[in-house]
Design a binder for these strands. Structure first.
Lengths: 128, 128
DNA sequence: CGCTGATTTGGACATAGTCTAAAAATAGAC
DNA sequence: GTCTATTTTTAGACTATGTCCAAATCAGCG
C-alpha cells in the first residue's frame, strides 16, 4: 500500500491484490500464473489489469521481468542483483545469490559497454 | 548437404535453403526472420517447414536455440560454448567468446548440479 | 512404372500478450 | 455529500509466435 503510493502508483484494490501476490512470490510466476492465483480472491480481475499492473510495478522498479523460459516472461520480486538456475527437468527457476558466483573479464570487452549481467545456469537441482 | 546427410537429415531443397541461411547467419535470427529471407529464393516455402527444419537442425546439434529476447526464440549457428551480449538500444545479440569471461563459484553451489551455463550481458555496443 | 514412407503445404488451432472503447471507480472542487 | 474530470478496469478484439493436422507432393526402391 505505502509501497505503491511511494512510487506514485495509485493503490487500487486490484493493484494491491496483484502486488501482494507477486511481491511475496518465491517462485518466478508468469502473468498467467499471477492471474490464476489472484483471481481466486478477486474474481472480476481481468487479464488486462494483471498485465497492466505487472508492467507498472516493473517500470517503477518494484519487481523485475526476466526472459528465462521460452514463450513467456516471468516476474521476479527480487530487485537486487542475483543469478538464475533453471532446473532442466521441472523448468523451475531458482535464485542464486550474487555473492556465490564471480564473473571476471567483462570489463575488458573492447566492443561492449556492460551495464548489467547475470549468469544463467541450467542443470538439476539436488535433493538433499 | 553432406552436413545434413551425416546427421541423418534427408537434404530436401527446402531444408538446404533454410540450413544454408541459418548456418551462415551472423545475427541471431528468429524463425520469422529466417522465413522472410529464405522465402525470397524459395517462394513456396511454408512457415511450418521453416519451424520444422529449424527444430530438426537444433535437435541434431547443428544449431542451438537461445531464449534471449522476449516473445521469440532465436537460433544460433555457433554450437560451441559462448556468452551473449544484448545491445539494450537495438536489441541485437552479439557473441562473446567463452575465453573472454571466467565464471567461478558454480561448482560450490550445494543445491544445484550445473550442467551448462552462460553469461548474459546487457549494455551498449561501443562504436569504434 | 507403381508402391511406400517421408516431407511439404496451407490453414486451423493454441498461447502470450497488447489494444480499445465503454463502464466503473476515484479524486478533487464546491 | 454531489458533481465533474480523470484514472482505472473490464471484456473482447486483435496481433504475434509457434504447433498441429490432413491432404498433396516428393523420394527411394523394387
Amino acid at each position: 500500500m505505502a509501497m505503491l503510493r511511494s512510487r506514485g502508483i495509485q493503490p487500487t484494490p486490484q493493484r494491491l491484490a496483484v502486488a501482494e501476490y507477486v511481491l511475496r512470490a518465491t517462485t518466478h510466476p508468469s502473468a498467467e500464473e499471477v492471474w490464476q492465483h489472484v483471481r481466486r480472491r478477486c474474481p472480476t480481475l481481468s487479464r488486462a489489469t494483471v498485465y497492466n499492473t505487472l508492467n507498472v510495478l516493473a517500470e517503477k522498479g518494484l519487481i523485475r521481468t526476466q526472459v528465462l523460459k521460452e514463450g513467456t516472461v516471468v516476474f521476479d520480486p527480487r530487485t537486487d542483483r542475483h543469478h538464475h538456475f533453471i532446473d532442466v527437468e521441472t523448468g523451475r527457476v531458482y535464485d542464486v545469490p550474487w555473492s556465490a558466483i564471480r564473473v571476471s573479464g567483462k570489463e575488458k570487452l573492447r566492443d561492449f559497454d556492460v551495464q548489467e549481467y547475470q549468469v544463467v545456469l541450467r542443470g538439476r537441482r539436488r535433493r538433499r
